Each structure stands twice: as C-alpha cells, then as structure tokens.
Computed example of a mutant assay.
Amino acid sequence: MREPTDFASKPDIVIGTTDYERLEGLASSFETRLPSVTEDLLTELSRARLVPDGALPADSVRMGSVVRFRTDATDEKTLQLVFPGDADIANGRISILTPIGTALIGLSAGQSITWCANDGRRHRLTVVSVSQPPLVGGGLELQCLDRG
C-alpha cells in the first residue's frame, strides 16, 4: 500500500490546460493497467495550478520539456518528458507514466520533490534546468540527448 500523500510537503506546480486535459485522459485510459502510476499522476494533476498554455513559465516542466535534474541516487541526468508511445530511455526520452516522469511534471528549475520508485524506495529529485524543444509541424520535435 502506498503512503498517504501530504500536499503540504510537496512543491507548488503549474500545468498548462492542454497538458492537463491530455494527461487526465491518458491516466484514465491506463487506470486498470497501471493503477499506482495513474493514481500518482492524477494526484499531481489535482494539486497543480492550471494556467493557459501561453502563461506557463519557460522553466516549468511540461510534456516535451528537456529536464536536467539530480537525485539522491544518481548524478545529474538529462531526459525529455514524453507520452508513453514516444518513450525511449536509451535516447533520453522518459514516459510521463513512470514514477520519475510523474514526479517531474509541473516542477520548475530549483524545485525538489520526493518520489517513490517502482521498488518502493523514496528518493529526492531536484530540477537543475528546463528547456523547451522547438515546435515543428504543430507538434513537439523529439530530441536525442547526449547523456555523456
């Protein structure tokens, strides 16, 4: 059983309305297959401050963002937050439907959050920087990242 969520100990997050709507639908469609992950995603969505897409701060993690972060278990990593069909960890693209992907959504540079890994261990994650990929053909261009 998962620990109860304490909103007071979590950082404020902001999500654009388009991401919110798409993520809420995604969570609903995966609810029976990945109940704990979708529960975590829905919890994050419920506590987020919603803003129009154009009002999102440039350093807020949204779908397609390239995020540099560090955890208590690893050195700095750079990953792009993507929808499940675009996930490819070997090329630096992580699904929103992973514990770390869900933890990242809505955070801004400098914020930290505690998240629970698939093995049940809790970790602390701190966002170092966030960049947004250029829009290409009405969608986000996925980037291959050098994880050097």
Score class of each variant (00 low, 15 high):
Ser60Met: 00
Pro52Trp: 00
Glu76Cys: 11
Ala58Asn: 08
Gly110Asn: 10
Ile105Lys: 00
Phe83Asn: 03
Thr126Asp: 03
Val61Glu: 01
Asp88Ile: 00
Leu45Thr: 12
Phe83Arg: 11
Pro57Gly: 09
Leu45Asn: 12
Arg122Val: 07
Ser108Lys: 15
Gly120Ala: 13
Asp119Leu: 06
Val136Asp: 09
Asp75Asn: 10
Leu135Phe: 10
His123Gly: 05
Asp53Val: 01
Leu140Gln: 08
Pro52Asn: 07
Cys116Trp: 00
Leu125Cys: 10
Arg49Pro: 06
Asp119Ser: 14
Gly64Met: 03
Asn91Gly: 08
Val127Trp: 04
Thr114Arg: 15
Asn118Cys: 02
Val136Phe: 13
Arg68Gly: 06
Ser46Ile: 02
Ala48Cys: 03
Val128Gly: 09
Ser60Phe: 00
Ala117Trp: 02
Ser131Cys: 11
Met63His: 04
Val51Ser: 10
Asp75Ser: 13
Ile113Pro: 07
Val66Thr: 15
Val130Tyr: 08
Gly138Val: 08
Leu125Lys: 09
Ala103Ser: 13
Ile89Glu: 15
Leu97Tyr: 14
Phe83Val: 14
Leu42Asn: 14
Asp86Asn: 08
Leu45Glu: 11
Thr43Cys: 03
Ala58Thr: 08
Ile89Cys: 02
Leu140Ser: 10
Ile113Ser: 13
Val67Pro: 13
Gly138Met: 04
Pro52Ser: 13
Ala90Phe: 07
Ala87Ile: 01
Ser65Trp: 05
Leu50Cys: 05
Arg70Tyr: 04
Arg47Asp: 05
Val127Leu: 05
Ala117Thr: 07
Lys77Asn: 06
Ser131Leu: 08
Asp119Trp: 05
Leu125Asp: 05
Ile113Thr: 15
Val67Gln: 11
Pro99Asp: 12
Ser65Phe: 06
Glu76Arg: 14
Thr114Tyr: 01
